[in-house]
Design a protein around this nucleic acid. Structure first.
Length: 496
RNA sequence: GCCCCCAUCGUCUAGCCGGGCCCAGGACGUCGGCCUUUCAAGCCGGUAACGCGGGUUCGAAUCCCGCUGGGGGCACCA
């Protein structure tokens, strides 16, 4: 069996989004599973929408995800170039070959004429297919039209056959298309640049792609492309059309669905390994009763024919949960990585200057030590740990409930008890607090809750004693005393 | 309008090919409980689905047909 070669071919017309990354991932898995080659090809023939910035960002996002390619515009390879705008001579050669064997012909219709054809067909309730106006022009007509200044586009001769076109799809099975629903489609613009259905076929063949794995939105392109392979005398690769990932509104996932760009997930503090694991759960599911897989297991277990046919809806809740699973592991096994991720979030929020000192790094490490196991994403550090880096922002409800006059003396007493405490560690701190409560004849919770609000502004968070230890005596005392004043003043209203 | 695809809990899915082990399993979410200084985590428990109608069969989530619903495509975009 020849080496398996797959590809993902993005257009640099936007940031990499989750749907595209998912599709690329399955191509990548298939190649890796077979110890084959995964190729990244840039389809930038639409020069009005393609930019270098987007191309760079796509590479960067794949790099972050850990989806690596063996051949591509940046790493090169034996069958390049891998950027379509650098392959124009190739397309020209095969366009000429098609012309030479009369499998393609020049079309002099203008976009305006075609548009009005379509409009007419549509208003008459008919399906619009190309009229075939230029299909059988005499050479003399062509010369005349060119003389009048018209630059022709190129159409592939598709109509004429009555044979059904059969697509044997690896995930969908056999799909049959009747030729009367196809028409002669344009393969090159009048400026000579190739269109998707042409460039794609040429590239896939020349790059020796063995498996085309793409979204089901391309299924209807497949018969057209098969006609092209036949016209060129080429053997088409195997094809597999995967379902399309849908947004919550059940429409194809796209930029309209808010955060769909891979880089948005990155900046929110998601982990690439969690995202990849999550990807494997959409339209696939390696084992029936298991959710968490190491990447190597996914590679080893991937089988194209096990991929589902119906379109999954992107479930952010589940991704978030899975990310939390990975985050908790990381807190145990690779805390520095969590520290780095949180640092980036805090920098962005202006709570931490870039280029941490080793002291800051150590402090952040302690913070992660106490809040880490409740971070589902690194972004959650703003929910559970912002007060380590700024004065607490009192939640009005929390303040009015817990900073009442009755708690003022308790907070005062706690502060006093903590004043000369050595060492300022969670154990001794707890002892002091319990002592204060015992002296006052109240339950610990009567002071724990007010103290938490005083120190963090919130009712939820890490254990009070470890939190204080990390926060340090100075700030703890200061916050406790300020809150005591606030509490004594009444309802706690106006706190903040 | 035409062509094509799809159809199991709210969501991701297992089961379907090779009918019985499925009055349908797991996970997320959600609800309740335990634990607990709060929240999270963890543990225990609950909720919730084979779209509808016909067949075939002793027996259908699984096979066949129709319907309905959803999605995609029908560019000198990819």
């Amino acid at each position: 069996m020849p080496q398996i070669r797959t590809r993902y071919a993005p257009s640099p017309t936007g940031y990499l989004h989750m749907g595209g990354a998912w599709m690329a991932f399955f191509n990548w898995l298939h190649a890796r599973n077979h110890r084959g080659v995964f190729i990244l090809r840039v389809e930038d023939t639409d020069r009005t929408r393609s930019t270098q910035e987007y191309e760079d960002s796509i590479f960067a996002d794949f790099g972050w995800l850990g989806i690596t390619w063996d051949e591509g515009p940046d790493v090169g390879g034996p069958l390049g170039p891998y950027r379509q705008t650098e392959r124009t001579a190739l397309y020209a050669r095969y366009a000429q070959a098609l012309l030479d064997r009369d499998a393609a012909y020049p079309c002099y219709c203008t976009p305006e004429e075609l548009e009005s054809d379509r409009a007419r067909a549509s208003s008459a309730g008919r399906s619009h297919r190309y009229s075939g106006r230029c299909r059988d022009r005499m050479p003399s007509e062509r010369t005349a039209l060119e003389a009048s200044g018209r630059r022709p586009s190129l159409r592939l001769r598709v109509t004429g056959s009555s044979e059904p076109i059969v697509v044997d799809d690896l995930v969908r099975g056999r799909v049959v298309f009747e030729p009367e629903h196809l028409d002669d489609y344009i393969i090159a613009r009048s400026d000579g640049t190739p269109l998707y259905n042409f460039a794609n076929v040429v590239d896939d063949h020349l790059m020796q792609i063995t498996h085309i794995i793409r979204g089901s939105e391309h299924l209807s392109n497949t018969p057209k492309q098969l006609v092209m392979y036949r016209a060129l005398g080429w053997t088409p690769p195997a094809v597999a059309h995967l379902p399309t990932i849908l947004g919550a509104d059940r429409k194809k996932l796209s930029k309209r669905h808010g955060d769909t760009a891979v880089r948005d997930y990155r900046s929110q503090g998601f982990l690439p390994e969690a995202i990849l694991n999550f990807f494997a759960l959409m339209a696939w599911h390696p084992e029936a009763e298991r959710e968490v897989y190491a990447l190597g297991e996914l590679i080893q277990g991937f089988r194209l024919e096990d991929v589902g046919r119906s379109s999954p809806i992107f479930d952010l809740d589940k991704l978030t949960w899975l990310n939390g699973v990975y985050m908790r592991r990381l807190v145990e096994n690779d805390r520095n990585r969590v520290v780095e991720m949180c640092a980036r979030i805090l920098e962005r929020e202006g709570l931490l200057a870039g280029g941490m000192t080793s002291q800051q790094r150590q402090y952040l490490g302690q913070v992660v030590g106490v809040v880490g196991d409740r971070l589902k994403t690194a972004g959650d550090v703003m929910i559970y740990g912002d007060y380590f880096f700024r004065e607490p922002v009192y939640d009005p409800e929390a303040a009015s409930r817990h900073l009442q006059p009755a708690s003022a003396p308790l907070l005062e007493a706690l502060a006093a008890g903590l004043e000369g405490l050595e060492p300022f560690d969670r154990g001794p701190i707890e002892a002091v607090l319990r002592g204060v409560c015992a002296d006052a004849g109240v339950e610990a919770r009567a002071l724990v809750h007010p103290a938490r609000v005083a120190l963090t502004g919130r009712t939820a968070g890490p254990g009070l004693f470890e939190l204080m230890e990390v926060l340090g005596r100075e700030r703890a005392l200061e916050r406790l005393r300020r809150a005591a004043v606030l509490a004594a003043g009444g309802s706690g209203a106006g706190a903040g």
